[in-house]
Design a protein around this nucleic acid. Structure first.
Lengths: 180, 180
DNA sequence: TAGGCACCATACATCACTGTATGGAGGCTC
DNA sequence: GAGCCTCCATACAGTGATGTATGGTGCCTA
């Protein structure tokens, strides 16, 4: 046998399928076909489908956490760190984000995971804004607005906003920073 | 028999379930139990599950269209129509929006419906901005940003932004209108 | 090189759900 | 009030998926 699979291989494929096909195809036989093995392998690596689902959710949370921390540990560009963030912390995969939030509508535990991650990203945003010198009274609103907008941008089909230029967005970001 | 059901009753319950439980429970027997009848009724009103799903999607599109048109036909507040819109056109049900977008991650046709609706709402936004005197070069960016932000606000758990005051949001909206 | 271990295939029981066939019950109409 | 029509119940076949039991195969180690 040339291609032995690990638990991580299954989880990785799970994230792929979640992003491309949605949570509805996070099933043992579908994934097995995609990995060109049978469910025998699946049930050797995972106790149950629920076990696998937990692993996928964990991987997503881990990935999100890691990316946030990486952005946070980045040797800061002092002033324009906010702009850097907007380009950095939200370079997440839109399809995966969609898949995860779609899954969350059907499973309360996934929904809880999403809320947790949203909370982390918002907290990080507030920290950055604070460091950028935004007045304390403004921080909560600004952070929320930035997060909302970037999430929306991630979820809405890009072809609908194809006439939105990069310069326009940057101008908007500046307006947002100077503020008031 | 006291409670005869109509096709619309089923669709309405479908929207309820979609909002509260997600598209995964848009099944004949689940809905039948919720309506306290058997699937016999379901398959009398609908040719198939797919037929029912189409009806639910149609009802959502119809509902969204109607709400947009209602907002558009509203005898306008001339200047601050933008603010009115932000409060009006996005008073949609967050749970239903979530459910629909979650469903869209698992069904390409639903995804197409969502794109269509997003397009309509964006177009309406641009129209309002144009009427409000926003310079043509700014309209696309502003409309996108407003739509993104409101969608995000609809999808993110409110408890995470509970310290965002209504006044703060209004201040932000003003900043957004004056702009540049 | 023999044995054990890690990984996978195969076959089977089970369950949830769909769709269909048919029968029944209540109200409308003539 | 007889008959029809609308709506629903019941029973059944079929399908797709889970989970389990068991056997097989290649690699690693002594």
């Amino acid at each position: 046998m040339t291609n032995r699979l690990t638990r991580e291989d299954w989880v990785k494929k799970g994230l792929d399928v979640l992003a491309s096909e949605g949570a509805g195809l996070l099933k043992a036989d579908v994934l097995a076909k995609a990995l060109r093995v049978t469910r025998g392998s699946f049930y050797w690596h995972f106790e149950s489908l629920e076990d696998f689902h937990q692993a996928v959710r964990g991987a997503w949370a881990e990935r999100t956490t890691a990316s946030v921390i990486a952005a946070l540990e980045e040797p800061g560009h002092a002033g324009d760190r906010l702009e850097a963030l907007i380009l950095l912390a939200f370079q997440a995969d839109g399809k995966l984000e969609r898949g995860m939030r779609g899954w969350a509508t059907q499973d309360a535990r996934v929904a809880a995971d999403v809320v947790t991650v949203d909370g982390m990203r918002l907290e990080y945003l507030r920290k950055i804004l604070r460091e950028a010198g935004v007045p304390e009274a403004e921080i909560a609103v600004r952070a929320a607005a930035i997060y909302w907008a970037n999430l929306g941008r991630l979820l809405v089909d890009r072809t609908l906003t194809k006439d939105v230029t990069e310069e326009g967005l940057e101008a908007l970001a500046r307006l947002f920073q100077s503020g008031q």
